[in-house]
Each structure stands twice: as C-alpha cells, then as structure tokens.
Design a protein around this nucleic acid. Structure first.
Length: 579
RNA sequence: GCCGCCUUAGCUCAGUGGUAGAGCGUCGCUUUUGUAAAGCGAGGGUCCUCGGUUCAAAUCCGAGAGGCGGCUCCA
C-alpha cells in the first residue's frame, strides 16, 4: 500500500471513530481528526469525561458501524449549508469560517449515516478497512488548536495498518522499545534516579551515571580544546541586574523566583549567555584575538511546567556544554563550519546516525521585524545553508522560525518512543552584543561590535545521556562503559590472585569491578551479563596455575585465556580504535 | 499549568472495607562453586502525604506531592 493510501485509510478510521463516538455519546462534539504516523486521532469535547477504560467499548462500536459502511460520498456545499449542518459545534464552525475566508471550497463527506466536514482523502471502499488492523490506544488532553488559552479537548489515539500482522508487529516493536527506555534502564543499571523529596525534574546520578556524564563531557572538552576553544567558569546565582541588561528578566518565563541576599534579588541562572557577555566585556579586545571561543559546561535551572517533565529528556536542572564565539562577520562561515564538523564527529563517536537538522531562517517577506544588519543576516543564513548543504545530513529549511535576534540550526533526535528532541544547536545572536554593548578594536583602530555565535553540541548532558542510553539500550561501547570489565574469582581460593589482576587493570586506567560475593559462578556470570558490562574475566585454579585469566566479551563470547598484560593491551587498543 | 491514568518492602508487583503479601535484592549461616539464578534462615512497610466518611480504610470521598501518556514553549 502506498503512503498516500495508508494516510487515506487512517483518515477514514478517524471518521469511523467520530461516528462511533456520536452513537455512544450523542452530546460529544467532534473537533478535528487527522491521520498521523502509525495511525490517527480525533479530538472531542465530551460533556462527561471519558478515560482509557472506555476505549474497548468504543472500538467495538467502530467495528459494528464499519460493517454498514460502503464508500465515502463527498459533495460541495455553500457556507450557509455547512453552517447549518454543524450549528452547535463551535469547532467545526470555526473551521468552516476559516476555509471560507481562504476562499476554498467547503466539502462534506458521508459514510453510513455519519457526515463530517472534510477536504477528502479516504479509502474508496470502506470494505478495504480491515477491522482487525486498528486499535484505540489511549486518551490524552489536547488544547483546541494547540493553544493553552483554548478549551481542553479529549483526544483519542488509535493505531492503524493495512493488516493485523502489521499492527501486531508494531505493538511488539513498541514493547521492545520500552525495554530500552532510559528511565527504566537508568534505574536498572544504577545510572540515575529521581527522588520525590529532592524535587520534580531534578535527577541525581549514581556513581555509574556520574562516570558516564564525565566521559561524555570529557570528550567534548577534549575536542574543543584541540580547536582553540577556551574554558571559562561562571557562578550559578546572579543579581537580577544582569538579566535586566540582557532583557531576560521580564521576557523569560522559566526563571525561578529570586532569593534575597543583603536585600538584593538574586536568581538561579536559567541560561549562561549573559555571563559570557559580561566576561567578554570585562576585558578590552582586539581584532587579533577574534574569533574568541569561550566554553563552559555548567548547569542551568529552569522552571519547566510540571506536566512537561520527563526522565532525563526534560528536566529542571540541565547542564549545557555551552559556548559563545565572538567573531567578525567575515568569520561566521568558518566558525559554523568548525562547529558542524565537531558536531558530526561527536555523533560519529557516540554512534548517532538518525537525526535531522532544522535551519531556522527569517521571514523573507517581513525582514523589518528582525534585529540586526540585513547584510549580516544574509551572510549568516547563507553560511548555515552552505555548511549544512555540504554535510549530506538530512535537513529542512524553516522559514519564519528564526528568533528575532538571529537564525539558527537545531539538531533533532527521536527517543525510543518516537518523540522528537533537540540536542545540538548553533544560534547567531545579533541582540546580546548590542544589549551588552560589546566591542573590539578593528584593523582601522575603530571600535566595532562582534557577532556572537552560541553553540551547544550535547545540548544538555542530561538529555544527551537519555538519548544515548536508549541508543545503546544500556549496552555501551567499551570506551563509554562505566564499568568496563568484571573480575570474577570462582571461589575464595582465587580471591587474592584476582585482587591482584583487578589492581593491575585499575592501575592501567581500566574501569573494573571485582565480584567477590559468595555466589556460584553461574550467578556471578548472570550478574555480569545483566549489567551489560562489555567484558568479564573468569579466574579459577587453571588460570592461577598458568598466570592468566579467561576473557569473555559481551558481544563476541569467549575470547580466551590471557595474562593481565595482554588483557590490558587488548582493551586499551579497542578503546583507542572505537574512540 | 491543563486533560486522563498511576503511587503497597530497595526493585517488580499481588491484595476492593475486617490483624500487610510474593519473587528478586539485602543481611546471617551452610556451601567454595568452571560460564545466565545453590540451600536454609532473618530483617525490611506512617500501603505517597494531609483531611473526611465509617464501629473499622491500603481499599470509599476530597485536597496536595510525585510519576506516566498527551497539549504549547524550550536543551
């Protein structure tokens, strides 16, 4: 079945859902019901609330109605006719009005005794809908037209495929994906946790999680320093004055309430840009220093709405690998190119292939609403386009998506449940240099204003970790594994010898753990495997006699018996290659 | 924040108005193990919190906190 036909099938099922709802809840008002990835949804205003428990009943009704359906009959109607047909339904009336305003034709589609306002796109014969190949999955609240000022409707989601087999295999896939959910693995592998008494959206990291964080952040630090990026450090609380200058104080809504220190308001920092600006401003600068690349990996605190929080992907304490490059406008393209190259290398190192880039540009028809010089905008937008165009990455240009202060690139990823998240970002900022009155002395000896490029590769360490955990399903490559090898003495007799091997590995910089518990070998191996550690060593009498240890790999099974030196060499070689 | 669901031992979860349960983990003893779970025993709970109904509440009702699925903005 073609993608278009599948869309038609799904859209037809949305109609069927609405028909069933009208039968079961005559006073419910249907609003809008499109086809989506893997299925469909329909939004309704219910007079009495329904919940997931009502779905089986609705599904049953859908199958019953489906039997009486043949084809979808469409016909054009006048505005008066349409308004008449949907009087009492403010949602449909709003849509009718808008369609009419746009000068488009109004069409109604009917099947059985259900009629809906619709632009078309259904299966030509309702018999083509397989009653076993769809399923209602869950209900959710959704604001009318996605605007929180509007009424909250009840959305019913459904899955739909051509055959029951496709539906079943999709459901099985979802079950498998749930096993890789970073929130589940975070607990199981002792990486991080959320604690009620600490607060919502404030994750705490166990030793293994802290090591993983350090490895990820350390990688970025190393890559940056190779390229002439300079570390800075900034405090986490700051006078309100700073945000008055930056303009965030009355515009930024995710700031925590201030605390009084000596009668003055101090804020937890929700972003780092103003501090970077101040540090730049506090020294005189020459064109010879540019581009000046300041970086800092530092935590921000943002008040995110409670309902928005989710594991590590949406939190209230987020650590950014932040960077601000101060440069001349002629240097924009080279700087962005370096950034893109670093981002590409980072994704490769962490095994990320599945992402796309959004290029947010200004509204070309309304250039007046943007801040900054037209020529600089032009340069910046072209630089973003040409750099991304030459990488071969998937990208979409999004006109009118740029901030008023500059265009940007956002790198988008999906989590195991198919939700999209932004990680890396490159943003031009023509506003802050002005607000902070930044300058440098140019070649002619005159004061000039630098361009600021804001950039984060990880985006936030927490979110990056969430995506990373799911990407590997917790089975990290050797260089990223919090524990790289478990040393397993079979019994007490080998304990001392095993401790010695463990020490040699540790001294060589290998992250090890020794399992000295009073358990059977089988149990110790099971524990090593369920912890997803890349390697383990078995040490019994045989190994002791030959001064070796038996190496087994998570991915490749038994490797063989080696001396401690050989094992160290093997692991170090693999770490170097993979990284 | 809003709509819906959920919250019982460290973890996964049974338990629908009448004295709080299981498996795993933890601790102790026995066992000293050769490639995915040894045996026995012990300990562990303000049943998320506060309030209400009831002779009696983990269970029913209300409010709050936290988690989950969505909606708008964002890393």
């Amino acid at each position: 079945m073609t993608e278009e036909k599948l869309q038609n099938l799904r859209h037809s099922l949305a109609h069927l859902l609405a028909a069933a709802i009208k039968e079961l809840y005559p006073d419910a008002l249907p609003a809008i019901g499109p086809a989506i990835e893997n299925g469909f949804y329909y939004d309704f205003e219910f007079k009495t609330p329904i919940s997931d428990a009502d779905l089986p009943k609705i599904e049953k009704e859908m199958r019953k109605i489906l039997k009486g359906w043949k084809e979808f009959e469409g016909h054009e109607v006048s505005e008066a006719e349409a308004t008449e047909a949907f009087s009492g339904n403010p949602y449909k009336l709003e849509l009718i009005n808008e369609i009419n305003q746009r000068g488009e034709k109004l069409t109604l589609y009917a099947s059985g005794n259900f009629t809906d306002l619709c632009r078309g796109g259904h299966v030509d014969d309702a018999k083509k809908i397989n009653g076993d190949a769809f399923a209602l999955t869950h209900t959710a609240g959704a604001y009318w037209r996605g605007n929180e000022k509007n009424k909250m409707l009840t959305r019913i989601y459904g899955l739909a495929f051509t055959t029951k087999e496709e539906l079943d295999s999709y459901i099985v896939m979802q079950e498998e994906a749930k096993k890789r959910d970073h929130r589940k693995l975070g607990k199981e592998l002792e990486l991080f946790t959320l604690i009620d008494e600490v607060g919502a959206g404030l994750p705490l990291f166990y030793p293994k999680g802290a090591i993983l964080r350090r490895l990820i952040e350390g990688y970025i630090t190393e890559e940056q320093e190779k390229r002439g990026y300079l570390p800075i450090w900034i405090p986490h609380i700051t006078k309100g004055k700073l945000y008055e200058i930056s303009g965030h104080l009355d515009k930024y809504d995710a700031m925590y309430s201030p605390m009084k220190v000596d009668e003055i308001d101090y804020y937890l920092k929700p972003m780092n840009c103003p501090h970077f600006m101040m540090l730049y401003k506090s020294l005189p600068h020459s064109y010879r220093e540019l581009p000046l690349r300041y970086t800092s990996t530092t935590t921000n605190y943002r008040y995110e709405k409670s309902g928005e929080l989710s594991g590590l992907t949406r939190v209230r304490s987020l650590t950014q690998d932040d960077c601000h490059v101060f440069c001349e406008s002629d240097q924009i393209e080279t700087e962005i190119s370096t950034m893109a190259e670093m981002i590409g290398e980072t994704y490769k190192a962490f095994g990320f292939k599945d992402f796309w880039v959004r290029i947010s540009l200004r509204d070309s028809k309304n250039k007046g609403k943007y801040l900054g010089d037209d020529a600089v905008w032009e340069k910046a937008e072209n630089a973003l386009r040409s750099v991304i165009g030459s990488t071969g990455w998937n990208y979409k240009e999004a006109e009118n998506e740029a901030a008023f202060y500059g265009p940007k690139l956002d790198f988008m990823f999906k989590d195991v449940l198919g939700r999209e998240w932004q990680l890396s970002t490159i943003q031009l900022d023509f506003n802050l240099p002005k607000k902070f009155d930044l300058e440098y002395t140019d070649k002619e000896g005159k004061k000039s204003q630098p361009v600021v490029i804001h950039r984060a590769i990880l985006g936030s360490t927490e979110r990056f970790m969430g995506i990373l955990i799911e990407h590997y399903g917790g089975a990290f490559p050797l260089w990223l594994s919090p524990v790289q090898i478990v040393v397993i003495p079979i019994g007490e007799k080998q304990e001392e010898y095993a401790q010695n091997i463990n020490r040699l590995l540790k001294e060589a910089g290998i992250r090890t753990e020794i399992d000295s518990t009073n358990e059977t070998l089988g149990k110790k191996i099971r524990n090593a495997k369920t912890s997803k550690t890349p390697y383990f060593l078995v040490i019994g009498d045989k190994e002791m006699e030959n001064n070796t240890a038996t190496l087994e790999s998570r991915d490749a099974g038994q490797v063989g018996a080696f001396s401690a030196e050989e094992i160290i060499q093997k692991l170090q070689k693999e770490i170097k290659e993979k990284k």
